[in-house]
Write a protein that binds this DNA or RNA. Structure first.
Lengths: 197, 197
DNA sequence: CAGAGATGCGACACTGCTGTTTCAGATAAA
DNA sequence: TTTATCTGAAACAGCAGTGTCGCATCTCTG
């Protein structure tokens, strides 16, 4: 309903849609079961308007997950996985993803059933991810006999874990680049002692 | 209500409680928002009876999370973290935890707000976990300068990820011991190439 | 400025879940 | 066997949320 370009929407309508989506992410992130009413209020809009723009609650969530998935794909792409040295790309992509996931905690979280569109995008992202990891493996930084799918899943898990962010953590831990460095390091070397080089 | 021993319950009542808890775990695992009705039906009991044994939905979930947390603590303890060699204990505890988490996917999952009792137990588990990891570090299998809290969180994340279990995975991956080996290995060494020993 | 479009407001019907009550009949325990 | 307890069945009130109206009013756009 929101993305059906039957006729271009008026500027204020477009603005409402953006406000609703932003508010939905904000509200649902901390109360996954929040009502349309609460979302509407947070968006500075009436519930009626929300229903005007998104027929169902599902339609709203779908739009949310689709947008978030797109942002995530963009985050990966911004790491230049094709052209940059693989490890550099991995680091940049990790840092970007951390930023995006922090901002779209609900739509990218586990508490949601993704739209078909979002699923497609996530599949595509996984593919890109495997490609990048494969390139790193060819380069020798990942064991030649490593299962790339397992590697990818560990990578995802580390990102997810890093975002939980203990409240008592040092503020430096909130810096995406520092976190990314820690993630990539842990992914490649684990927590064991480093062999004398 | 279920655990208030004002007077010992009759055998059938006790049986109902067990059936309800088991059914709740089963049903909620695949439909977190399931109604009391659905849970009751799965338990082979009337909704009335469920409400007789658990005043609120919250009370039911609380009992569930408390029991699951206890099982989890038991899983760790069964690894003999005090007496066995630390790495052996870690491996055994990991395998046990995998089994328990697979069976209590809802009550131990992220989709639930834990009861105070469960929170206490989880804190205690985290403490035991840190102790064990500390012992491993002293032994030299974990880098001396490693942040134990980060290590623990990575450990948790790996367990969680391993349980997602891709549908197309080899059946061997379903074996808790094999999975545990993979987890411990990844935790300690990452996915990078092994240094020639 | 004129008019198409968007919003707010209030109302409505509808659904699904919750929690409680009553009572007759089944079941364990002594 | 007797008695206390437990359960199923069938209601009931209540509540929160959803989705849909119509209509008056505002505000973009050409």
């Amino acid at each position: 309903m929101s993305n059906t370009p039957g006729r271009p929407l008026r500027a204020d309508a477009e603005r409402s849609i953006r406000a609703i989506l932003a508010a939905a992410e904000r509200v649902l992130a901390e109360t996954p079961g929040a009502s349309m009413e609460q979302i509407a209020e947070a968006a500075g809009v009436t519930r009626t308007t929300v229903h005007r723009r998104f027929a169902n609650r599902q339609a709203l969530v779908d739009a949310l997950t689709a947008e978030a998935a797109a942002k995530l794909a963009e985050a990966i792409e911004d790491g230049r996985p094709e052209t940059a040295p693989p490890l550099v790309a991995l680091h940049r992509a990790t840092a970007n993803v951390l930023r995006v996931k922090a901002a779209w905690g609900f739509a990218l979280g586990p508490a949601v059933t993704h739209s078909e569109q979002a699923v497609r995008t996530h599949d595509e992202i996984a593919r890109r991810c495997r490609e990048l990891l494969g390139r790193i493996r060819e380069q020798g930084a990942i064991a030649a006999d490593a299962d790339l799918e397992w590697v990818r899943r560990v990578f995802y898990a580390l990102i997810g874990e890093a975002l939980h962010g203990d409240p008592g953590a040092a503020p430096a831990d909130a810096d995406p680049d520092a976190l990314a460095a820690r993630i990539v390091d842990t992914l490649l070397h684990g927590v064991g002692p480093r062999p004398a080089r």
